[in-house]
């Protein structure tokens, strides 16, 4: 089973210095991503499978076995999804526009 990850359109993100800050529009919660989560966030284009991201971006950056990295990345992605930072799906995720001020905010559907 392939997993795909995409950046949530409800999140604003900026790299400040060496750290990636992300803010959820709901509840104004601020998160600081660790280096692995930052790599995952940057690569989460909705069309590249998570396994490929891990292989190309994470295993090459950190000295970690592929199997272990895949397991950790999946757990991390689930955690980020729980906080509304990433979207996860078993199919590629198309880009979803951010709701404009005043428009009724729809719950994000996993495709």
């Amino acid at each position: 089973m392939k997993l795909y990850v995409a950046r949530s359109p409800r999140i604003a993100a900026r790299m400040l210095g060496e750290e990636m800050l992300v803010m959820s529009g709901q509840g104004s919660t601020l998160f600081t991503l660790n280096p692995t989560a930052t790599i995952l966030w940057k690569a989460a284009d909705g069309t590249t499978p998570l396994a490929e991201i891990v292989e190309r971006r994470i295993c090459s950056e950190f000295e970690v076995k592929s199997e272990e990295a895949q397991r950790d990345a999946e757990s991390l992605a689930q955690d980020l999804a729980k906080h509304g930072i990433l979207l996860i799906s078993e199919q590629p995720i198309s880009e979803q526009p951010i709701a404009k001020t005043g428009a009724p905010v729809q719950e994000q559907q996993q495709p």
Partner: peptide, 14 residues
């Protein structure tokens, strides 16, 4: 309590 405005404030701070 508005997503777009929260994002505006975040970008303003950054």
């Amino acid at each position: 309590e508005d997503q777009e405005m929260v994002h505006c404030a975040f970008q303003a701070a950054c």
